[in-house]
Design a protein around this nucleic acid. Structure first.
Lengths: 228, 228
DNA sequence: GTCTATACACAGATAGAC
DNA sequence: GTCTATCTGTGTATAGAC
C-alpha cells in the first residue's frame, strides 16, 4: 500500500473526530451548537499544534492561542475549562483515533511477513497523517497526569507487543530468524519514531513517507528474514 | 570496547568540564573562587537535569531549582544572570564536551567496518555517560535561540556525515553494499537516539548499553555488509 | 558568598456587557 | 457565542543585610 491510498481510507474519519470531541464533552463546555463547536475545536487544536511545535505547550500562553485562532480569551474558555483540560482533550482525542486505525489495518490472519509489512507501514502512514498529534504527544508527555501518562506508555507497549507476536509467529513458521524479538521490535519502533520526530530533516532531503517506509522494511527484513 | 572501558577513559575529563564552565564565564558571574563555583555549578546542573526530566525546563521554576539545590534564589543568581542564560550555559557546556569525545574515539585510518563499529559505540556510550545532557538537549531544543538551535542541527548533521563517509569508504572497498548511505546513516542515528530517549524502557527490561550496542551493530551490519 | 524580603511583569482565569 | 476589562496568583529577578 502507498500513503495516498492509506490517506484516502483515513480521510473520511477525520471530520468525525471533532464531532466526537464535542459530543463527549457536551456537558463540560458552554457551546451548544455542534457545527460551531466542531469548526472551532479544529481551529483551536490546529493552533495548539502549531504554537507547541514552535515553543512547547508550557511556553504557549492563552494569549498566543487567542491571537493565532482570532478568538478572544473569553471565547476560548467557553470550549474548555482550563489549559490543562485542553491538553487532556487533545491527548484523549488522538489516543482513541490511533487505536481505531490500528484495528482497521492489521489483519492477524495474513502471513507473518505480510503482517509485518502492513503494521510497519500503517504506523508510519498514520504518524504522517496525524503528525502534529504524534509529535505533540511525544514532546508534551511530561505535562500529562499520571493516568494519561500510563495510557501513553501502554500504547507504546501494545504496538510493540503486536510486532513481537508477528516476529514470533514468523519464527515458528521458519520464515524469520531466531532473534531477540522484543529488542527487534524496539528498534523498529525507533525507526518509526524518527519519521515524525525529525520531520524537518526528511522534508529537506525530499524523502517521502513511502521512500522511508520501503527503507525501513528493507532494513528490517535483511535482519529478520531467514536466508537459508 | 565495552562501556566500562569507555567510561574510565572519559571519567578524568568530567571534573574538567565544570572548571571550563567557570573559567569561560568568570566575567559574567559574581563568584570568584573556582572551587566554590565548580562545586555549585555541578550541583545546579544536576538539579536542572533532574527537574527538567520530571517536568521540562519551562515548567521548572527558580524556586524548584532553589529547593533542589538547597541554595537560595539570591545565590543562584550569583551563578548566572537569568534562566535563559542558565539554559545557554548547559547547552554550550555539553556541546563542547561531545565534540571533544568524538575526536578522541574515531580513527579515520581504521578499516571501514572497524570505524563503523567504533563510531556507533562511541555515540551510544557517550549518550549513556552524559545521558541527562543528551535528553535535555533533545527535549529542550525549542527553548534555544536560533543560533544555538543551529549548533544543535549542525552537530546532528556532522555525526551523520561521519557515518556516511564511513559507509562510502566501505562500499568502495567492496565491503559494504551499495545503498542509500545517507538514509542508512539516519536510521543508525534513530537507533542511537532511542537509547537515551526511552531509557525507562530499556532499564525496566534490564538491557545494558553493551547489549543494545551489540544489537544495533548486528542490525546494521546485516543490512550493510556485502554477503557475496 | 549566601541569605530574606520584595518589586514587577505576566500568565491563567472570570465577570458581565453586547 | 463572543467580546473587553479585570482579578489574582505565581514566576523571574533584584536589593540590601549579614
Amino acid at each position: 500500500m502507498k500513503y495516498m491510498e492509506f490517506k484516502q481510507i483515513l480521510e473520511s474519519s477525520d471530520a468525525e473526530i471533532y464531532k466526537e470531541v464535542f459530543q463527549e464533552n457536551q456537558d463540560n463546555i458552554r457551546i451548544k451548537k455542534e457545527k460551531t463547536a466542531v469548526k472551532n475545536f479544529q481551529k483551536i487544536f490546529d493552533a495548539v499544534f502549531q504554537i507547541t511545535y514552535e515553543k512547547g505547550f508550557q511556553a504557549m500562553t492563552m494569549r498566543d492561542l487567542s491571537s493565532r485562532t482570532n478568538m478572544s480569551l473569553g471565547s476560548l474558555y467557553a470550549y474548555f475549562a482550563s489549559k490543562e483540560e485542553l491538553l487532556a482533550l487533545i491527548h484523549k482525542h488522538g489516543s482513541s483515533m490511533i487505536t481505531n486505525v490500528f484495528e482497521k489495518f492489521h489483519n492477524p490472519d495474513d502471513e507473518p511477513l505480510e503482517q509485518l509489512r502492513s503494521v510497519i507501514k500503517a504506523h508510519l502512514f498514520l504518524s504522517e497523517a496525524a503528525r502534529p498529534w504524534f509529535y505533540f504527544t511525544f514532546m508534551e508527555s511530561k505535562n500529562l497526569n499520571p493516568e494519561q501518562m500510563q495510557a501513553v506508555i501502554s500504547m507504546e507497549e501494545s504496538t510493540e507487543n503486536r510486532l513481537v507476536k508477528i516476529l514470533e509467529a514468523g519464527e515458528e513458521q521458519g520464515l524469520f530468524r531466531k532473534t531477540n524479538h522484543r529488542l527487534t521490535a524496539s528498534i523498529i519502533k525507533a525507526m518509526q519514531q524518527d519519521w515524525y520526530l525529525k520531520r524537518w530533516k526528511y522534508k529537506k532531503r525530499e524523502i517521502t513517507v513511502d521512500d522511508y517506509a520501503d527503507y525501513v522494511l528493507e532494513f528490517t527484513e535483511s535482519f529478520c528474514l531467514n536466508k537459508e
